[in-house]
Amino acid sequence: MKAQRVLVSAAVGVGLGTLLLPGAALADTTVSPASTPVGGTVVLTATTCNPKSGDALFRVTGPDRDQNVRSTTAAAGGGLSAELFTAGFTLGTYTVAATCGDGSAAGSATFAVTPIGGAPAGAGGGTGGGGSVAAGAALLGSAAGGALILARRRRHAVVAATA
């Protein structure tokens, strides 16, 4: 009986703690999109920060970079957001750690600054047979035409000689 009472008290305690400290329990930071070509923009969002507690601070760390970005808008789905323009960023993976206005940590996320587009990895040396086939066919056609003309001429010559 006593053990049961202790268990119930513990459960109530955990439940109350979760309710009273939602930031700690559900801390979350997102970066959208998760990768961007260099020069693109990503949106940083601390989904659990309460705008009434003040601006969130996003610490962006990665290759050759350690900068703080302050939230500028309330996110549509809740929390606070900031836009990050990646012009001049070194390519690579970055970590974003958010802190809410009340000083509570709001989790972290990563994103990648990537090359632009695909890769130019071919010179066409494995293709191009089409032009060769067409030119070859034209030459064969010319040869056939010439043969026909020569054959006719010979037949005319034979007929003229026997007449």
């Binding site: 494995g126 047979g129 089409g130 060769s132 086939v133 067409a134 030119a135 030459l139």
Partner: peptide, 9 residues
Amino acid sequence: MVGTGVTVL
């Protein structure tokens, strides 16, 4: 030329 082209294609 036709032979070469077909091979490359």
